[in-house]
Amino acid sequence: MTNLVIVEHDNNEVGAATLHAVTAAQQIGGDIDLLVAGENCASVAEAAAKIAGVSSVKVADDAKFAHHMAENLASLIVEVATGYSHVLASATTFGKNVMPRAAALLDKAQISEIVEVKSPDTFVRPIYAGNALATVQSADTIKMITVRTIKFEPAASEGGSASIEAISGGVDAGLSSWVSQALSNNDQVDLTSAKIVVSGGRGMQSGDNFAMLHSVAAKLGAAVGASRAAVDSGFVPNELQVGQTGKVIAPDLYIAVGISGAIQHLAGMKESKVIVAINNDSEAPIFQVADYGLVADLFEAVPELDAAL
C-alpha cells in the first residue's frame, strides 16, 4: 500500500486537520507521502516533512495553486495519484471541495468522511446524520477518501524526517479565480479544536445575546458555536454552525444553551465527552443526549453560570 495525503494549508502552516488524515493513512498501512500544492509554500513543506511517519513530501509551488481552486488542484491530484493505492484528505470544506472532483476525473468512487479503518479496502462511514454507520468495501484500484477528523487522533507534528521533492504538473484551467475571504475573528478559540465549546440556539433570541455565551466561553477558554437555527436566524455567522452539514466536533465539554437538539445538530456534537444542556423545555430532545441537564430559563441560568466560574 502507498498512501498520498493532500495537505491542507494556508501557504504558511499545515492545517491541523491534515494530521488526523495522516493517522488514518497510518492505520491503512504502508508508505505515506504528502502533497503540498500552493504558492510560496516552502514553510508548509518543511513542517510537513517533520510529521511522524511520512516518507516524502511532494511540493508543487506554483501561482495556479495559490488559493487551492478545485479545477487546478484536482488536475494535479489526478497526475500524482497514479501509483498510489489510497489518496486521503481531511473532510473539511477544503477536502470535500476538491477530492470528489479528482475522484471523478480518475473514474473512482469517493468514500466520504470515514470514521474507522477496518482494513485497507473496508471503511466505516456515518450516514443519515450519524444515525447509522455503514461498513463499505471498495473495489477501486485507487481509494479516494476523506477523513472525519474527530475519529482519528492527530499524528505527531514533530519527529519525522521526510524527503522533500519539488514537482510540477497540473493545469491552470482558467475557470475560476479567488476574490476574497471574510475570516472569522482570529482572537477567538478555534471551534474544531477547542476542548470546551459553548453553543447557542434559537433560544438565544438575538445575536446580541450571544455576548453572554462569549463571556462564559472566555472564562473557560472555550470556543463559541451555534445551531443551524441560530445561523439561519442571522444571530451568528455560518462558520459557527455545528451539525450534520456544519462542523462536526468532539470537545471534552459541550454546553448547549437554548438548543432543542434537532437530529442534524446532534450529528455535529454527540461525540463530545461531556454534554450539558440548558433549556427551559424539559421535553427538548437535547436532554436525551445530555450528561447533565438543567431545565431553566437561559437568561437567568447563563449569567448565574458566568458568575459561578
Partner: peptide
C-alpha cells in the same frame, strides 16, 4: 464501486442526570 457490508446503529449515550 462500493459494497455495503453492513449498516448498524451507533452506540447510544448513557442516560444523564437532571
Amino acid at each position: 464501486r462500493l459494497t455495503t457490508l453492513k449498516v448498524e446503529e451507533p452506540e447510544g449515550r448513557a442516560a444523564g442526570v437532571i
